[in-house]
């Protein structure tokens, strides 16, 4: 392999990381949710809300801090240096915002036993609407790019990239090797017997939902803090792809990781390989944009075809309504 090719592949991988990391974070969170037997289709909405609040937090800490409404006359004019602690606070804000929205889902589905699918779809609409109306102030005359700030990096990659990679074995370990994981899986496999064993099914699921929301929030934060600045609908369907990714990975963290990076590479290739086919008509390239979606469907088909894969790995109670015997 020539050094040029190697350099090219490295750059491709770097670009892929940017696209794969949010997918991976969101998918890992949702994986835990689904393992507990809940299908939350609101990932896209939670990502958007997480993105917005992460951005607002970072924006406020990076540039001028004005608390005019709270303390009259208090305005810290000079620009601050964005520190590691600030970054963590921004991430925390994003995770909390995602979890807050997830709590709405949890309350409606676990507390009030509303339909998972319907509430999840509603959550996506709510997340998009809410982030649009709250976020419009942050696209404005006072706008400065959070992107330009130096982000804490470890070995050339953002903290969240490492966090998402560490989360893969961590989530596998917790789910497979710890008591907590056993309980989560038990609830997801058969909520009736888990209930009979004395586990509070709705409560356990609620915690899993919160975790999923927090991870989706972080995924959104990564997009706006590391990749691009906030804009309305900045996640452009990544939440939905994260859902497909879980099926692709058949609820196994390591396979979800592979899937996320395959998606990432596919995406990064779209704009980089177009020069390989100079004879292509321009309009054909628009069809290239559908590649990730066609690929997703193909993968879903292949996975679902192999007998038993889905049935063996899918949580048996996924998406089913839980009625505790009274």
């Amino acid at each position: 392999m020539s050094p040029d090719t190697l350099a090219f592949l490295l750059k491709l991988l770097t670009a892929a990381v940017l696209l794969a990391t949010p997918l991976l974070l969101a998918a890992l969170g949702e994986l835990v949710v689904e393992k507990s037997g809940v299908l939350n289709l609101g990932v896209e909405g939670m990502m958007l809300i997480g993105a917005l609040f992460g951005y607002i937090a970072a924006y406020n800490m990076q540039s001028i801090t004005c608390l005019e409404e709270l303390i009259p006359g208090f305005c810290q004019k000079e620009e601050r240096i964005f520190t590691f602690a600030d970054y963590l606070v921004a991430l925390l804000a994003a995770a909390a915002a995602g979890a807050m929205l997830a709590a709405v889902f949890g309350f409606l589905t676990q507390g009030l036993r509303a339909n998972h699918v319907a509430v999840g779809l509603g959550l996506s609409i709510l997340g998009a609407g809410l982030s649009n109306s709250l976020g419009s102030n942050f696209l404005g005359v006072n706008y400065t790019s959070v992107q330009v700030a130096d982000h804490p990096q470890i070995l050339g990659q953002d903290l969240l990239v490492w966090l998402s990679l560490i989360a893969v074995p961590a989530i596998w370990y917790v789910l497979q090797r710890t008591r907590t994981g056993l309980v989560i899986r038990a609830v997801g496999e058969n909520h009736d017997s888990a209930y009979a064993l004395g586990y509070n099914v709705p409560k356990i699921r609620f915690y899993c939902i919160l975790f999923g929301g927090a991870m989706a929030g972080l995924a959104g934060a990564f997009i706006v803090l590391v990749h691009v600045d906030w804009k309305e609908g900045v996640t452009v369907g990544k939440g939905w792809l994260a859902l497909a990714l879980i099926l692709f990975g058949t609820w196994k963290p390591l396979r979800v990781l592979c899937g996320a990076y395959i998606f990432g590479l596919l995406w990064a290739s779209e704009l980089r390989f177009d020069n390989l086919f100079p004879d292509w008509q321009l309009e054909w390239k628009t069809l290239l944009t559908t590649a990730p979606y066609v690929f997703t469907i193909l993968v879903l088909v292949i996975i679902s075809r192999s007998p038993g894969t889905i049935r063996q790995s899918a949580p048996a109670s996924l998406g089913k309504l839980f009625n505790p015997p009274s």
């Binding site: 289709l41 699918v117 369907g237 939905w240 859902l243 497909a244 099926l247 008509q281 321009l282 309009e283 054909w284 628009t286 069809l287 944009t289 559908t290 979606y293 066609v294 997703t296 469907i297 879903l300 088909v301 679902s304 075809r305 889905i310």
Partner: peptide, 28 residues
């Protein structure tokens, strides 16, 4: 035929369909 989750495939078909629409308007 393949027991594929229809919720996700039908959603993916939205993205594909809308790109086909754009393709037709740009090209043919």
């Amino acid at each position: 035929t393949c027991n594929t989750n229809e919720l996700l495939t039908s959603l993916m078909m939205v993205y594909i369909g809308s790109h086909i629409l754009t393709y037709l308007c740009i090209g043919p």
